[in-house]
Design a protein around this nucleic acid. Structure first.
Lengths: 213, 213
DNA sequence: GGGGTCATGTAATAGGTTACATGATTCT
DNA sequence: AGAATCATGTAACCTATTACATGACCCC
């Protein structure tokens, strides 16, 4: 039962974790997050930054440390984290790490209605997915090796985790694919029969019955 | 680059996959989905059903097949899938299965800011997560065994997938936990030092500098 | 007669993203 | 001179969820 937070957007988490290191103005926060590749890493839309910063401030998790300006440029408002902000950040991380939450990857949704495709097509799609997964893994592994020397392992955990999950997904897909291709997957006949019936009913209907208003 | 669909809500997918089997009225659809446990399975809120049904109809994916009433009860509007609806459903499933989309589990977000906790606390949280994961797996496996005789394997794929992913996550967590507990995790000293410095700065600040408006 | 379930729908709200608007500075 | 980047913010919008509103029927 994930707690309702005053600022629920995960971008808020990223912001807090950035300003805890050093006070910063929003643009700088954005630059920092982009640099670390959090953009695609987490589900973060930097466009929402100013909104989220305002919300964090309203909730008392960050406060204005300083406002400076250089020349006639717009004012830069530097924010720092408050004690309440530190507490919120820590509590939030505790929840995210300690309590597994039911997740719903889109692939699972797809699998749950896989029956509307035939076995051959499902196999073809799985092959496609598999190559995409593998290519992605290669790219990520290369990137990870690049960081490996520069950044302490502590900051690479998410990447390692994602790679592990990808690999697990790939091998599950490979296994299912094997069953489909070799024909040992149970119930292939019934599957095909049901599918044929379904598509017959749903394409022929209009011709057979006509429309009724 | 996931396509923008006229009806993007995954509940729409569930509805289409239900009415392709047989025309139904919304309440019946809801009952069917609940029965199959799609509620927690997918990220579906049955409360949005009538809205989604209306949207699907507006988009031409379903149409009214019949309206009947029993006594003075509210009219039951029976919907059936259209040819466009069948096409949409199939296309949607193809996308969900064929194209891996970057997913962002909350655990990953947590890991990405794990540095704000100390190694001992992280270990404790991981232990907690691990037991929760294991308990969940046991429950799911039991449930799966219940269905196993009744429902063809084809309709249990999502469940199998989820179990596999849970197991993979658990073993990754176990490995990390091992490293932390045995002390072989690299950079423990620096981690502790940085953390101490951070928390010193962020709790002592107000006393040292005072507030400036 | 009262509670649960059948059955439908609308309206308000929340949450987040995108588009827009502005203007200075710095690099090419 | 023109483009990219620095820097900020607001307003509109879209989407989804929740709460509300209604009323009949059925079982105890």
């Amino acid at each position: 039962m994930a707690k309702r937070r005053k600022v629920g957007n995960l971008l808020g988490l990223a912001v807090l974790s950035t300003v805890i290191v050093a006070p910063m103005h929003p643009y700088e926060i954005a630059a920092t997050l982009r640099e670390r590749g959090k953009e695609d890493d987490m589900a973060i839309k930097i466009g929402s930054l100013y909104t989220v910063v305002r919300n964090l401030q309203k909730a008392g998790f960050i406060e204005v440390a300083d406002t400076s300006r250089a020349g006639a440029r717009p004012e830069r408002t530097v924010y720092r984290i408050t004690r309440a902000g530190v507490a919120e950040l820590v509590d939030w991380v505790r929840e995210l790490i300690g309590e597994p939450q039911p997740e719903h990857p889109r692939f699972k949704a797809g699998l749950s209605v896989a029956a509307v495709l035939g076995p051959e097509e499902l196999a073809a799609l799985l092959r496609h997915r598999l190559t995409a997964l593998e290519e992605g893994s290669v790219a990520r592994r290369r990137a990870a090796e690049g960081y490996a020397g520069q950044v302490p392992r502590l900051f690479l955990l998410e990447g390692e985790f994602e790679l592990a999950m990808r690999e697990a997904e790939a091998s599950w897909v490979r296994a299912l694919l094997g069953e489909l291709e070799s024909g040992v997957f149970p119930g292939l006949e019934m599957w095909r029969a049901n599918l044929a019936e379904l598509s017959a009913r749903n394409t022929a209907r209009h011709e057979q019955e006509g429309e009724r208003s």
